[in-house]
Computed example of a mutant assay.
Amino acid sequence: MSEHRRCTARNETPLERADRNFVELLQELRVVQTGVQILFAFLLSLAFTQRFPSLDALQRGTYVITLLLTVLAAALFTAPAALHRSLFRRGAKPHIVQVSSRLATVGMGVLMFAFTGSVLLVVDVTTHSRAAGAAAGAATLCVCLGLWGLLPRLVRRAAASD
């Protein structure tokens, strides 16, 4: 099939479709990246608070793991821009879109665990209850799994049956 042949329901070529898909992906990443940046700034500031030295070993471990997960999520969410920049004008747009989509999907999974760890830590520290922290972290994980995993499947199933 020719690269220039119009072949989709939107009457666009494969390259036009790749361009559109990449723009849509970047818009999604802009929304997510703001949240990641806020979470990262919050976590960085925690280490410099007066209360930080009083954290126990599990709380410090949760903090470090959550901080690193947040950095990894930020790296995964910014990688599509770096990938695009390094392959700009090399005819790789469909591959860039495919890889970038996978990076964003993995990033969402990592972010889910960063959210979970953040909530676990904050609730544990503020309530002085490890059980409350664990419950809040588990609830956060369930909400993310439901909204980011289950809901899209349900919508896809409903759309397929229409």
Rank of each mutant, 00 (worst) to 15 (best):
A114K: 07
R90N: 02
D19V: 10
V155Q: 04
L120M: 12
F77W: 08
C7I: 08
G35L: 00
A75V: 15
R17M: 14
N21H: 08
V143S: 02
A160Y: 11
S161C: 04
A104G: 11
Q98R: 15
A104E: 08
L46V: 14
L44R: 06
V143I: 14
L58H: 11
G149F: 03
A160N: 05
P152N: 06
F115E: 00
S161V: 12
V106M: 03
S2T: 13
L103Y: 01
L69S: 03
E3W: 14
Q37I: 08
L150H: 13
E28G: 13
M108W: 14
A135K: 05
S161E: 14
A74W: 12
R51I: 09
T140M: 03
T66G: 04
I38L: 09
T78K: 07
T13I: 04
F115A: 00
P80V: 00
T49L: 01
A138R: 09
A92C: 09
C142S: 12
A136Q: 02
V122G: 08
Q50K: 09
L111T: 12
C144F: 15
T116N: 01
M1N: 09
G35E: 02
I96L: 06
L29N: 13
R20I: 03
A57R: 05
R157F: 14
S129H: 04
L87N: 12
E16F: 14
N11Q: 15
V155D: 03
A57Q: 11
R85Q: 15
L121F: 10
T126V: 09
F88E: 01
I38P: 05
R85W: 13
R60V: 03
L55W: 14
R20Q: 13
L154C: 03
A47L: 09
F115R: 02
F22E: 04
V123Q: 04
R90G: 02
A158N: 10
R102H: 11
M1P: 15
V123L: 00
A135D: 12
A41D: 04
G137W: 01
G137V: 03
L141E: 00
R17T: 14
I38K: 03
A160K: 06
V125I: 09
A132N: 07
I38H: 07
T8I: 02
L69Y: 10
A41Y: 05
E12F: 06
A9K: 10
K93A: 07
L103C: 02
L15G: 01
L145D: 02
A104H: 08
G35Y: 05
F22G: 02
V143Q: 00
T62N: 15
S100T: 00
L29Q: 10
E3P: 15
L154Q: 11
G133I: 00
R60N: 13
A160W: 12
V106Q: 04
L67K: 06
L72I: 13
L46C: 14
R157S: 13
H128A: 05
I65N: 05
M108F: 15
G137A: 01
L154F: 05
C144G: 03
A47I: 08
V32D: 08
Q37E: 10
L111I: 05
S54A: 09
R17L: 12
E3V: 06
L68M: 07
E3C: 06
K93W: 07
E16Q: 13
L120E: 05
L121S: 13
E12M: 12
V122D: 06
V125T: 10
L150K: 04
R102Q: 13
V32N: 13
L39H: 02
V110N: 06
V110W: 04
A75R: 05
V64M: 06
L76V: 14
